[in-house]
Amino acid sequence: MNDHTLAPLLLSLYTKSGSEAVLQYQSFFPGNRLVGGKYHLGTHTVTLYIEVIKQQCLQLFGTLERLQDYALVVLAHELGHAEDDELPLLADQLEAAATQLERDRTALKIEENAWRFAKELLTDIEPAFFDEVAEQSLFSYRTAINLQTA
């Protein structure tokens, strides 16, 4: 799998979404985190970090066999942020949260909204594959809340 076969698939999904967000590609996320995609509310930009997406796919599945599907899931999730009408309000709530629990609950809501959009957009992806990626993504958010409410 090379980036030349990945780009047309990603562009096709982006077009299908109807999003007006700017879509850009970079190799790596700046910093030491394994971030495969990022949505920037202020610039309405989705950035995919292609080499990091490959690393994440290898970590989750031990192979790049499902790289195309995985990259589509990452893009759909980031487009979910871009198309979330609640995001500006939720971002304000996140910033104004008085407690860590409030921040964590708001962050979880932001992520769940994006995953809901992604699931509706990705009608051709195997549901079990999608659910595995989404659950892995949401795990740390849910764990943080559970630790505080236990």
Rank of each mutant, 00 (worst) to 15 (best):
V46Y: 06
A107Y: 03
S137Y: 10
V73L: 00
Q56A: 03
E78D: 10
I110T: 03
Y14M: 06
P30G: 08
A128N: 07
N2I: 12
L90Y: 02
F117Y: 15
L138P: 04
D92C: 13
E112P: 02
G18M: 09
A97G: 07
T15V: 13
A71F: 05
L108V: 04
T106S: 01
E132R: 14
I53Q: 00
Y25H: 07
A71K: 02
P30H: 09
A118P: 01
V73N: 01
D84L: 05
Y70S: 01
E20M: 12
D92Y: 14
E111P: 03
Y70W: 05
A98H: 08
Y49E: 04
P30T: 08
N32P: 08
Q93T: 05
L121P: 06
N113A: 13
Q55P: 00
L147G: 05
G18N: 09
R103N: 07
S17Y: 09
E126F: 08
R105D: 02
T15H: 14
T43V: 11
V52Y: 10
G62L: 03
A82V: 11
Q148I: 03
L6Q: 05
D3P: 03
Y39I: 02
L11Y: 11
K119M: 01
A118Q: 02
L90R: 13
L122R: 01
A71E: 02
L13R: 09
D124V: 07
Y25A: 13
E65F: 10
D85N: 12
L23N: 07
A96C: 10
Y14E: 00
L79V: 10
T143Y: 13
A76H: 02
D92A: 14
F139K: 15
L67R: 00
T45R: 15
L11V: 06
V22N: 14
L67W: 06
S19F: 08
D92S: 14
A96I: 06
E126K: 14
L67Y: 08
N2V: 08
E126D: 15
P127T: 04
L11A: 12
G18F: 06
L94E: 06
Q148W: 05
A114L: 07
Q148V: 03
E78L: 06
E135R: 12
E120V: 06
R103C: 08
H77D: 03
A76M: 05
E86F: 11
V73Y: 00
Y14W: 12
T106Q: 00
D84W: 03
G37N: 02
G18R: 10
D69E: 15
V74D: 02
D104K: 05
V73Q: 02
L64I: 08
N32Y: 11
E20T: 15
P8T: 08
T106R: 00
F130Y: 11
Q136R: 12
L89R: 14
R116G: 06
R66V: 11
Q55R: 13
K119H: 09
L122K: 03
L72V: 01
I53Y: 00
A7E: 13
E126H: 11
D124R: 11
L6A: 05
E135T: 10
I53L: 02
V46C: 09
W115T: 02
S17L: 06
I50M: 15
L94C: 04
A71D: 00
L108G: 04
L67I: 08
L147Y: 13
L13T: 09
E83H: 09
G42R: 14
D3V: 15
